[in-house]
Amino acid sequence: MKITQLNIYPVKSLGGIALDTAELTAEGLAWDRRWMVVDDVGRFVTQRQLPAMASIRVRLEDDALVLEHPAAAPLRVPLVAESLPRLPVYVWEDCCEALDEGAEARDWLGAVLGDWRGSGLRLVRFAPEHRRAVEPHYLAPGERAHTGFADGYPLLVVSEGSLAEVNRRLAAKGLDPVSMSRFRPSLVVDDAAPFAEDGWDTLAAADGAWRLGLRKPCQRCKITTVDQHSGEITVPGEPLRTLVEMNTRLAPGGYFGQNAIVLEGEGARLAVGDDVTARARP
């Protein structure tokens, strides 16, 4: 089995970046979800509220995060933070310490996205010394993990077979296939068995350089209905409705992919084409 995709999303809910290689950190792939958009009271804002966020393209240069949109000149944010104001921000029920990227970023977001229910939008950076723990009740005894601004876990692992099965079901309804980008995975592997990842306890490099623990099935939301290039919802409700109908977890809701933590290998490099091995749950 091989890695077929590596993706990062430096700003939560903005465009992703497909990589050939990536460094593994305790919080997932390097630079993944280190920034986030918040409203005036510090609550996170995502494509659930503003689907057009998907249309903002994101690049990483040697010294800057670059955001691009047809409605404005590119915004450059230095990778090295210097003397930024601190503020509390919220991802679901977690309060995190963040750094405010300032008025230029605020104005840029306002120009391309407008506001959110009368609130302005700010760009914030995860404070480098802050630690946001992964919910412990899904971890094995003795395990500890933390993440950045992701919904709850450092990584999302998906197999190609899972997408193929979703698209087969969509085709049976006369609907067009969707791309893997709808599901915003970190790491994709070429296992052909649909939802094989749901039965894995770990995924590891064949040479033992790193090892991930797959700890919680990912329940999906309306972001799966957003075209990740245009930011538009062309077929309302799909493919989320199909996932719910498939009932892969024999539980309410639609599930796709496995949330994962880093067990070993901080600092290791992953590459598309690398051989990986999966170990089944006991």
Rank of each mutant, 00 (worst) to 15 (best):
R215F: 01
R182Y: 09
G28P: 15
L14C: 15
M180F: 15
R182M: 06
A103Y: 01
R76I: 00
L14F: 14
G28H: 12
D176Q: 04
S119W: 04
F183T: 09
K2G: 10
L175Q: 12
D274K: 13
M180G: 14
G267C: 14
E93L: 11
R279P: 08
G42N: 11
G42C: 11
T46H: 05
E264G: 13
V91T: 13
A193T: 15
A196K: 09
V91Q: 08
E129N: 07
G118F: 02
E129R: 00
Q49K: 14
G257T: 11
G16T: 04
E82L: 09
Y255G: 13
V178C: 12
N7A: 13
L75E: 00
K216T: 07
F44M: 14
F256M: 14
R220W: 09
D107P: 03
N7V: 10
N7W: 14
R241Q: 07
E197V: 13
V112I: 07
V91R: 07
H137I: 07
E68Y: 04
I8W: 14
C218I: 06
V89F: 04
D63S: 11
D94P: 15
R144I: 02
A133S: 14
V262D: 07
L214T: 11
R117M: 09
V262M: 11
G16I: 02
I56Q: 06
K216Q: 11
H130F: 15
D198E: 12
G257V: 09
S181Q: 08
W200G: 10
G199K: 05
D40G: 15
V166I: 06
G118H: 01
V235C: 07
A71C: 01
V66I: 07
S83K: 10
G161D: 00
L240S: 02
E143I: 00
D198W: 09
S162R: 00
E245Y: 03
L99E: 09
D207K: 08
V189W: 10
F256R: 10
D227W: 12
R59F: 05
T224C: 06
D63K: 11
